[in-house]
Design a protein around this nucleic acid. Structure first.
Lengths: 206, 206, 206, 206
DNA sequence: AATGAATGAGTCTTCATTCAT
DNA sequence: TATGAATGAAGACTCATTCAT
């Protein structure tokens, strides 16, 4: 048992070391030796835990996605109203991203990996699942809000959820490039507009 | 004069060949020799046009961004109402992306390049400029709509433009991963919701 | 411990292989692969011992200079009179050069490296040190001879040492180009002339 | 006729440009394009004058050696006494070298070329001839001095001339590495010692 | 279980040389 | 005669992966 705990702890240490390396230098420029050194082990041992570089990178991706998800969930906490829960969902996602901003480049590398032939299948599958689950979670919140009467019927829930997830996801990229705005404020403001509408014409009866 | 025309045409041919290679195999896995071969020239000549691989990649990025921009502008055409113009802007952006979908992986590689130390300065600067100009264009459309009375005052124009750009941008990534939805439809539906509001509460008087 | 011995032995083997290659083909025409092959190792291992080609070449230079120096010292042996010690110094230097004649081209490459911008600092510095120490050693011998009364006062010791070192050093170049004379004989004869003077005028009283 | 004069002048211009490049960057690091550019002509034209890079380098060598020789001869001027003529010969050689110090690295490259297999035959032959003629000239001066009674008989004229040529030749290398001494002063002082002898023992009657 | 020495395939890049114009 | 675009051979160097100890 202790063995397994040790092994898990070591694997964890490797993932943290590797994610820092990948984030700092990029996937291609990170050598297995550098990761091993950062994790305080030897190259040979690294291969006991991950059978090759791609596996290690995938491991980092999985760990990172769990990290962000867990961080987001932890931030959501308890909210009463439907509108507040949706706001909290967005807040939490952005907050989690900001918490791990220095690891953000890993996400960009993952996206690139999802498009390359060698890694496409594995990475694009996992990413698709990730987005699907995010979208489903948000769609669920919207439907709850509809049930509570806070959001009107007649909207395309899937489309709304998908577009919102995209907007929030891309916020990180914009913020990585340009720190001159406040992501949380943008998001809250945008959600407010979405709820209230930005148009001036009278909404047709539903 | 003929020289210059030839040179430009050749440069163009190289960019097209290179973008196809980068999109198909990824940046790291694309060799200069492969690009030269695809462009029908020799490796040596390739270096007469681009001083190194990074320069070639940056050239591809610039060309691709102009391509998308031009394609989007061409699609915007003429629209009368403000709401229609904004809708057309989004439609055009998505249409341009769909037109070049097989080159989409290049964008992902560019994003990754914007985060890697060696290429960060150059690529992140260019990307930041690109997003800034997109955001400015959309903000301008929104302000026109406000002037026309089609969009109410009191909204955060910058935030709205930024979030919308992000949503549209990320749509491509989602669509690359998952072809099960219609990006244009999602976007139109979402914009409709944004104009009309998705909430049921009476909007406070502005 | 065995590790270190092995490592030193291997480094030594590489230096010998490399010096033979550089001497036979010249620096530019010698590939790292050829050196690795000659040393019986792989290209990759070569880079474990020398971080690049210039480093390898500098290593060869250092090794070669130690070799010649050691060989010269070993040949000097024990001589009683000052005049004999100086003669022995020259003899030993020439003998060492003749012992390693097939490696002589390496010296010529080193000289060229001392003039090229990329390698100038490192190589010219080391060569300057080498000549300085040779000159100092010879100057010391001359001063001993003066103390013993075998060489008269009033001569420029530095200039004499410097010029003699140069004459002996250049002998190798001449001999490399033209094997029609006996370097040892030339040198002994010349030293004899230097001691006794070649002029016919009566030397002024000191 | 004018054609030929033009051609010679152009060839001359190329040689000067090339020697400057070779001296500044070294043979390997100098590209034919750089030489063409420095000479104000195109790469293609360069090949009309020299059939390849080695030929160009050999041309530079020949030109440089004539330059030094001519410069030395011009400096020798007219001297009456034998001792003075020998001193003047050395002075002139050193002076010529100092006049062209910035081109000195070319000599080092030539020496290296004399040892490499590809260029050995051509360069070592030419250098051997050069040294032979220098040595012969100095030997002639010594014999004149013997005929005039200024230098005693019984010395090895060839050895003395060879060693002196070497000492003077190497002076340039030392001076290139270390500007802390005065080459002319060293040489004069050394020649003085050689004439008068540095030993204290009574010279045996000849 | 852990190590790190050894391997060699893979790639960018340079540049002497040619030749069509 | 002059040009410079085009070629492609050649080589330094890296690093994922293996395996003997």
């Amino acid at each position: 048992m202790a063995r397994i705990v040790d092994r898990d702890a070591k694997r964890q240490k490797i993932l943290e070391a590797a994610s820092a390396c990948f984030a700092r230098e990029g996937y291609a420029a990170t050598s297995m030796e550098a990761v091993a050194g950062a994790a305080g082990i030897s190259k040979g041992s690294l291969y006991d835990y991950f059978k090759n570089k791609e596996d290690l990178f995938f491991g980092v991706f999985e760990w990172f996605q769990q990290l962000v998800m867990a961080s987001a969930m932890a931030r959501m906490g308890e909210y009463q109203g439907a509108r507040e829960r949706i706001m909290a969902f967005a807040d939490a996602s952005i907050g989690a991203m900001l918490d791990q901003l220095e690891l953000y480049p890993v996400s960009l590398e993952v996206w690139a990996a999802a498009a390359k032939p060698g890694t496409r299948a594995r990475f694009s599958g996992a990413m698709k699942d990730l987005y699907t689950s995010y979208r489903a979670e948000l769609a669920r919140l919207i439907q709850e809000a509809q049930a509570e009467g806070a959001i009107r019927d007649g909207i395309d829930v899937e489309a709304t959820a998908g577009m919102l997830i995209g907007a929030v996801d891309n916020l990180a990229l914009h913020y990585w490039l340009d720190r001159s705005f406040d992501p949380q404020a943008w998001c809250r403001s945008f959600l407010g507009s979405l709820f209230d509408g930005i148009g001036t014409e009278t909404r047709k009866a539903q």
